[in-house]
Simulated assay, not measured.
Amino acid sequence: MATQATGVATVPRPAASLPAGLTLRNRQVLAKLGWGVVSVGLFVGIWEVLWLIGWADPKLLPPPHVFLGNIPDQARFFNTATRWQIGVNPADGPSPYEAVAITIGATSMRVFVGLAIAAVLSITIGVLIRYFGIFEKLVLPTITLLSPVSPIAWLPVAIFIFGIGNAPAIFMVVVALFFHMVLSTISQIDNVSRNFINVARTMGATKRQIYSRVIIPAILPQLLIVLRLNLFGAWMVVLVAESTGVGFGLGQVIMMARNTFNPSLVFFTIALIGLLGFLSDWLLRILQKRLLYWVPDTGGVLRGL
């Protein structure tokens, strides 16, 4: 029923436009999932068509139905921890599916441990740089100097310091994220609205209270977005680090597939890495909403359409 509150008739959205029990939020989630399936399906369909008409060599670019159609056969290659040890039967150790789970868990552990260490260190050092003038003069030039260096260049340093194992892979993830996040933290602090700081000063807040109650809560939303974007870089770097001698990991599987010229295993592992990266980003989105409960979820300008 129309209402006449300010001279303009307002017609409420009819309740029958949504199915029973399906909220607007659920409909949006289903729409995103549907479009995601369509997007991936379109990519897979084009790949399959190129294979069907003979433009994609199945020996070099096997179509998805080939490397995804026989998962047990692909999973048996994931037992990299005992496969190349002298005097050890390759059939010993975990089953193929257990080996896949162990490999995924090991690589994910390195990514998230490195991500957590990099986040804590970079935000802390970024805040200290702006909090203490002498600390900025001593530290910021070095960070600016080292930030353009590719993380891959740090790989020999990681091996020299930590040897072979989990530590160099975690170190590579930390290095890949640290410098960029320090500079992002400084940039976000500089962009905090001066009105917030002036109001806090008017209310008698000290410098420490301004940083802890105003500046840090103001920069956390953007920093978590930067962290999510750097997550994909962390997955790239950890694969390179794992290929240098870690006992088991997705990087080792990729390296073994390259050395044995097994393109099906390469693309199967690539698809697995893509799925893990998507799930990692989804988990960080949930964490962002839980931690930043004071930030409104606008959902974009088209949410109400």
Rank of each mutant, 00 (worst) to 15 (best):
L145S: 10
T144H: 04
Y97S: 12
Q28L: 08
L220S: 10
D92Y: 10
F196G: 02
N26H: 01
M203L: 14
L177Q: 07
F196W: 13
V149H: 03
A119V: 09
G54E: 09
A158E: 03
W55E: 09
P156V: 03
I53P: 02
S150P: 04
T202Y: 13
A118Y: 03
I286F: 08
I225E: 14
T202E: 11
A91R: 14
V37M: 14
S39C: 14
Q4M: 10
W282A: 15
A56R: 02
M255H: 10
A16G: 06
D297R: 10
T185Y: 04
W235G: 06
L50A: 15
R228A: 05
T107C: 09
L265H: 01
Q85S: 11
V44H: 01
S280R: 11
F77E: 01
A169P: 04
T124S: 12
L250V: 06
N262W: 03
E48G: 07
L61N: 05
A169T: 08
V253Y: 01
V120D: 06
G41T: 09
R130M: 12
L145G: 06
R13V: 14
Q209S: 05
Q74E: 14
R27W: 07
G45V: 03
A176W: 00
V111R: 01
A176Y: 00
H180P: 00
I71G: 02
A257T: 08
L61R: 02
A75W: 07
F261Q: 12
L50I: 10
I254S: 06
L275P: 04
L275Y: 14
V295R: 13
T244A: 04
G87H: 09
V11E: 13
T107G: 08
T80P: 03
